[in-house]
Design a protein around this nucleic acid. Structure first.
Lengths: 250, 250
DNA sequence: TCAAAAGTGTTCTTTATACACCCATGG
DNA sequence: CCATGGGTGTATAAAGAACACTTTTGA
């Protein structure tokens, strides 16, 4: 055989390269209380489709890759245009390129999907319109394309990464109490945690530092306010962009 | 503002979607003894470029996405064409889409990169030619494009995943001794491990099962041969394709 | 019998978990 | 004062690391 080199793979001038539409979408997570139970749960904003295929269905915010923007920049651009959101935490999730992603529609689209966390202040910037709506992650309607699969995968990714990384503060503002941080972990992991042990583990990890301030206005002993210790980096087992390798994002 | 919906993002008929060349590449790892120290180290096959840009430089095996193949199928096809390899373990690594990936060349290419593990039998199928060569992962020449960055990221990914997953058997054949399995861990993680503790941890995890056979021909007590216990699944913290979510690949 | 690696046992340290208890504030 | 969550102490269990020791083969 003489197909040893990349001869077949790269025709002259690239004019034989298969070109596909390249979309960029994002799964954005925020925490808010469930309207029924009142417990904190995962929510995400979806955008209503206004044309075929899947017209009227809810879909992930996103758009096409811009020729003059890299992947993450395109994700941020489409995100702010469709939802108004500019998340601090944004990370690539996966590239989806199955052949049957668009049901009957024969168009081939490859999607680079990102996932993001927003805290309440960021989420408040979201566009308020009939075409943008927040849904509970565990109570989604039928979504467009394979977006339900993508959301499920992103939820799984968030849950597993929460256990070994310190992404929880993506859901919190500049300062926060240990109880708030614990509530984030409880909401995402879906179980209650011992406050005493949680405190010791977090403090031992050196992930946060005391601001010296306390939160007042509660009907009990005022809790300390903490901030994230940006000086300390933790091991990360998830996909970071190569330039961030042994650093921790956010 | 009236950019609420995806109106701007999806022009009629998609003819306004930015089209880019979509490449698929793979970082393939195998273990073989270092020619100097004799210790097992990471090696990977590279393909020599036979045209500009980067003509003559070594590059990751890969090619263009085929219109009628999904991402993984395209990765396997380009892999076997360029290197002759058909790895059992193959997983998506990351999508690279920076604007300056091709140096002076203004062509925009987005690469979906996979990573793979091959055991000695698989590696023996590799094409033997001037245009395919194996390199030690810690002693690479200047590679084409941003492939050095990609390789470094893949190495980091392999190392971190080795610690919590059971991918080590991607480097081994059907049956193996505990010493062989331990050597794989030692080579990838770059440290020596206590044989006694390693044995207990692996056996306690139920990841492998005794074949009842022993390896003979050694100049000492014949070790047992084990195989992987495919019935038991371990938690995985890395990116799997959504359909594999709570399952473990390979 | 000796070398070398297989395989087992024991101790110690670290980490996680469960839960009792005191503290400080608003009402 | 009481209720409520903040915050500390402690005892137990599980997991990991270090290392002595016995076993079984080929030479």
């Amino acid at each position: 055989m003489d197909t040893l080199s990349s001869r077949e793979e790269e025709p002259v001038g690239r004019q034989h390269a298969q070109r596909v539409d390249l979309a960029v979408s994002t799964v954005i997570f925020a925490l808010r209380p469930s309207p029924e139970t009142g417990r904190m749960t995962l929510w995400l904003p979806l955008v209503r489709r206004i044309r075929e295929p899947y017209e009227g269905r809810w879909a992930l915010p996103g758009g096409w890759l811009a020729a003059d923007q890299d992947l993450e920049t395109s994700a941020r651009r489409t995100l702010v245009r469709t939802t108004g959101l500019t998340p601090r935490y944004l990370e690539q999730l996966y590239a989806f390129g199955g052949l049957d992603r668009s049901a009957d529609d024969p168009t081939r689209v490859v999607s680079i999907v990102y996932w993001a966390l927003v805290h309440p202040d960021e989420a408040a910037q979201a566009i308020d319109s009939d075409n943008v709506e927040w849904f509970a992650a565990d109570d989604l309607s039928e979504l467009a394309f394979d977006h339900r699969t993508i959301v499920d995968y992103a939820v799984w990714r968030l849950r597993t990464k929460m256990e070994y990384s310190r992404i929880a503060h993506g859901f919190l503002g500049e300062t926060f109490t240990l109880a708030q941080l614990r509530q984030v972990h409880e909401a995402v992991r879906g179980c209650s945690l011992d406050p005493a042990n949680f405190r010791r583990q977090i403090l031992a990890s050196d992930a946060i530092e005391d601001t010296g301030q306390r939160l007042t206005g509660t009907s009990h002993r005022p809790p300390r306010l903490y901030r994230y210790n940006t000086a300390v980096q933790l091991a990360d087992h998830g996909p970071l962009t190569p330039s961030q390798e042994s650093k921790e994002q956010a």
